[in-house]
Design a protein around this nucleic acid. Structure first.
Lengths: 182, 182
DNA sequence: GTCTATATTTTGATAGAC
DNA sequence: GTCTATCAAAATATAGAC
């Protein structure tokens, strides 16, 4: 099995259990590899696994969420395209966000830099579209932050209420929220 | 030391490390009690501790966040009063929300009922104020959900960006967001 | 109510065979 | 590259003294 096949399975474990809840045993079950095999791929254990997974999702962020924002369609259609992929990315809100999970507990100190970088990529990508749509810079930045705030908050509520309707509603109202007149 | 003095210290550990990251050793350090003493108070260990902490914060939610919503001031002032306490409750966004943390990993199955109940109390309390302010029922429910979404999302961003400005801005714009014309 | 001591299980990690 | 075997450390939990 190649490393490229292993990483998404590790990601799934981190997404389900968070950093401290993700044990080597759980990784072993998810990948069908014994503990020692995992250490062959990742000599520094869990911390290295999380680093690789973070790089993997940062690339997914760029390809699946940011790329659609740079098409030549009208701004509102680009945001809708991103949101369709957001919906798939988080499985209608049923999948936790790793950037949020890796900010908790001892993971926070370890991965703060990478998490911050990924979130800023996302915010900057959204703000760029809003600028193109004629929104002023400060407002564009604020609204882009609000979009990520709403996605992350909706994920929390989806889990807490055990119900994806809020997540879907938030995504639906987001394009017009972002592009409303100032 | 009484149980009432112990509970807030346990809460702080859960808030910092999440459910799976909170170990009996960390509880022992935080309370200055040896492991066995903690089992004297909570024979069922960590699960019972989390249950008691959840009841404790549900009460704090009612007293500190919901009570201000039932004053006889104008709706906008009541929401502002709640938000002042939200700001203190989460220490300007620097303290994680236990309702979010206890929805992760194995904690989710254990505490889903209590978490859902607490979140619905909060949403219902906010929606009631919006109804009094003349907002129609469906919109009131949606906006109340949006408020909790924004608070939770802002907490995630505060941690991820290592910066409380977004949290403060979200709280500041929330009263007018909630009461804007339909 | 708090402690020491101890038992048990789980976790993280490594050595070395194939 | 994957495994078995093994270890040390940490975690959960209990018994019983004071």
């Amino acid at each position: 099995m190649s490393k490229a096949e292993v990483v998404p399975k590790l990601m799934a474990v981190f997404q389900q259990y968070g950093y401290e809840g993700a044990s080597i045993t759980r990784f072993s079950e998810a990948t069908q590899l014994k503990r020692a095999s995992l250490y062959h791929y990742f000599p520094n254990g869990k911390e290295e696994m999380a680093t690789v997974v973070l790089d993997y999702i940062t690339q997914a962020l760029q390809e699946q969420l940011l790329a659609p924002l740079r098409s030549d369609s009208p701004p509102i259609d680009r945001i809708r395209a991103m949101n369709q992929n957001v919906d798939a990315f988080y499985q209608h809100g049923q999948q936790d966000c790793l950037l949020a999970l890796l900010s908790i507990g001892e993971a926070h100190a370890l991965f703060q830099g990478r998490v911050q970088q990924a979130l800023n990529l996302w915010i900057d990508g959204l703000a760029a579209v809003l600028l193109e749509a004629g929104i002023t810079p400060t407002t564009a930045r604020h609204r882009a932050e609000d979009a990520i705030v709403q996605i992350q908050g909706a994920l929390v509520l989806t889990r807490g209420l055990n119900n994806t309707t809020t997540f879907e509603r938030i995504l639906q109202q987001m394009p017009e929220m972002l592009l409303r007149p100032e």
